[in-house]
Design a protein around this nucleic acid. Structure first.
Lengths: 208, 208
DNA sequence: CGCACCTTTGACTCACTTCAATGAGGGTGG
DNA sequence: CCACCCTCATTGAAGTGAGTCAAAGGTGCG
């Protein structure tokens, strides 16, 4: 059992900007992204928002809602996207019978915890350049994992969204992109990015 | 099934500063904290560290390790502490037979994800005062949940550790404590804290 | 009792934000 | 197909919250 989405024949598609779910919605299902991408964000009472993740094909979305049966964040499509619905009670039922599925589900949840802790490290202790380099390298490896180019891709998100995710203002994101370009680390034109020197980007992240 | 720790008769105790596990250790068991408290931290290659959580009695520790079977962070006792070992394969086995345990386990993992996203919001978009106020209020309600005072308690962690958790330097933490005291929001002397005005602390967190 | 570590406080610096203005794309309707 | 508009992106200049460096008290453990 390697692909949760094989469990479902219930596909749904969302236009760019469409909501997969909103904060406070009743939780019934996880969703496996088949194509496209989503952002998740949590809202603060005063209107502040924090983007908590950018998810792409193959990833599972909605794990936050299990704890209270209500969604604690909202998920918005960043482009035309397709998902498989995975009714959670059915998933729990199945995973009682299929130990490998149970284990898989646990790993997915744990991986999300690890991912979040990595972002905490990033937000808590990195400078702007390090954050953006880490972000780009992360996109790069996830792209590569999907058989796409590790060095050339189109960003699906705006500078504002990147800034929210990385705890920076959009101007800082833009300036840091420009700075990376001057340094010959990347080539960037609006949302088209090419990573020119992965090695130096990596050392940038590693070094304080 | 409300208390995971009832599943285990295998208790263990750790002195202050003792390691429950270290980064890279093989994962076998979750642990339920029976008494005392732990901090978890992730280490970056270059030696930087980020405290990712302060856990107290009744909480479950080690969820990060499920994803890879290796611990991705380390857990250190902040005082003399006792834990129950919960062998994970046994836990999985049991939760196949006991749906309510299965559900409970899923909720615990999901709650950790939600908690982490709350910290991401804090680290990504709050100012120093808001961060510290949120931190104090969080300690307060967790204390209250354990039948202890919501307004008077002793911090188990240093300014350095608080700073690491909140993405601030220890001097900033110290200054912010002093500032809160001048404002009459709290009374603080080293690690002894008394919250004098919960209401104003709350509005501080809520307002940008 | 003394040493090591933690905390507080001050003065200065700096990375990032804020404010502001200009420029580039991309979709829509005439 | 082009003109218009709206949103997003870039860049500059000035401001500021938090970091850094430094020195002086406290605290508590061995």
């Amino acid at each position: 059992m390697h692909r949760l989405e094989d469990l479902s024949n219930n596909k749904r598609s969302y236009p760019s900007g469409g909501y997969l779910y909103r904060t406070g919605d009743r939780f019934k299902s996880l969703h496996a992204i088949r194509s496209g991408s989503f952002k998740t964000r949590v809202l603060h009472e005063d209107g502040r928002e924090q983007v908590t993740g950018f998810l792409m094909a193959g990833e599972i979305i909605g794990l936050d809602a299990i704890s209270t049966d209500l969604h604690t964040c909202e998920a918005v499509a960043m482009e035309e996207s397709e998902v498989c619905e995975l009714p959670f009670n059915k998933l729990e039922e199945l995973s009682r019978d299929i130990p490998s599925l149970q284990r898989h589900l646990h790993k997915i949840m744990s991986r999300e915890i690890v991912r979040d802790q990595g972002i905490m490290l990033l937000l808590g202790s990195m400078r702007a350049e390090e954050r953006l380099a880490a972000f780009l390298l992360n996109l790069s490896s996830r792209n590569a994992a999907h058989g796409m180019s590790a060095t050339q891709f189109k960003l699906r998100m705006s500078r504002l969204e990147i800034g929210s995710y990385l705890g920076l203002k959009l101007e800082t994101v833009s300036r840091t992109f420009s700075h990376f370009q001057e340094e010959g680390l990347i080539q960037v034109k609006a949302r088209a990015v090419e990573l020119l020197d992965l090695q130096r980007l990596r050392t940038l992240v590693g070094k304080s």
